[in-house]
């Protein structure tokens, strides 16, 4: 699903967080939003997700105008820096949450939900851990559960907010490589936010640099 953003603006009171953002992302691309803190990269990501409201502009997912859609309606997969796993649910329930909260009419049968959940866990190489609870997992494992959870809803676009920021250097390197491999395998349009330049260039098809609420460089293909 390609994404196109036009004239996006957002203010927090007197402070302009995003100015006149224009961005096109081709279907299946893996884009990095690179910038220092306060550059607006996370705000932009969250605005695409619908977690932040916008004051001007539009967001399109393919043919769909997503600007007025609620978070739920946009069907974006979001991965948080600190995992945001549901502490009181085991791994499988976390991963299948998005499927279990669907309306009766669109909800798959429980057996099918379970099957899909296990399949995803297998994909993120966490087979056998479905009964564990988040507190029993390492940081790297938690982030992979978070990713599986986001993928379960077959999102239009995958958004990752500094996904490896809370992990130690070694795990970070491993997961970087693994994420790239996963993307090559399943091909969702993906945007991830980072302040780490080497990470951005290593992972992404294209690096979009931001500063001061603006896009400085829309980046050329790697």
């Amino acid at each position: 699903m390609d994404i196109s953003i036009r004239n996006l603006g957002k203010n927090y009171g007197n402070v302009t967080a995003l100015r006149d953002i224009r961005l096109d992302i081709a279907s299946g691309e893996l884009i990095a939003l690179l910038g220092a803190s306060g550059s607006g990269k996370t705000t932009l990501l969250r605005a695409i997700a619908g977690l932040e409201s916008i004051d001007d502009g539009s967001i399109r997912f393919g043919d769909i105008d997503a600007t007025r859609l609620s978070v739920q309606e946009r069907r974006v997969g979001f991965v948080f820096q600190h995992y945001a796993l549901f502490k009181h649910m085991n791994v499988l329930d976390n991963v299948t949450f998005g499927l279990r909260v669907r309306k009766r009419s669109t909800r798959p049968r429980s057996a099918e939900i379970r099957r899909r959940g296990l399949e995803l866990l297998d994909l993120v190489q966490l087979k056998g851990l479905e009964e564990r609870f988040p507190t029993q997992l390492s940081g790297g494992q938690r982030q992979r559960v978070a990713l599986a959870r986001a993928l379960a809803i077959e999102p239009r676009v995958l958004l990752l907010d500094e996904p490896f920021g809370a992990l130690d250097a070694k795990v970070r390197k491993e997961l970087r490589a693994w994420l790239r491999q996963l993307h090559d395998e399943i091909g969702y349009t993906t945007i991830f936010v980072t302040h780490d330049e080497s990470e951005a260039h290593e992972l992404a098809d294209r690096v979009v640099t931001m500063a001061d609420g603006r896009i400085e460089e829309a980046g050329a293909a790697n």
Binding site: L51, V76, F78, H82
Partner: peptide, 16 residues
């Protein structure tokens, strides 16, 4: 609020 935000992105309505 992160868990709640995550729930919203996964499609849960307010009450759920």
């Amino acid at each position: 609020t992160e868990e709640e935000q995550a729930a919203l992105t996964l499609g849960a309505g307010g009450w759920r």
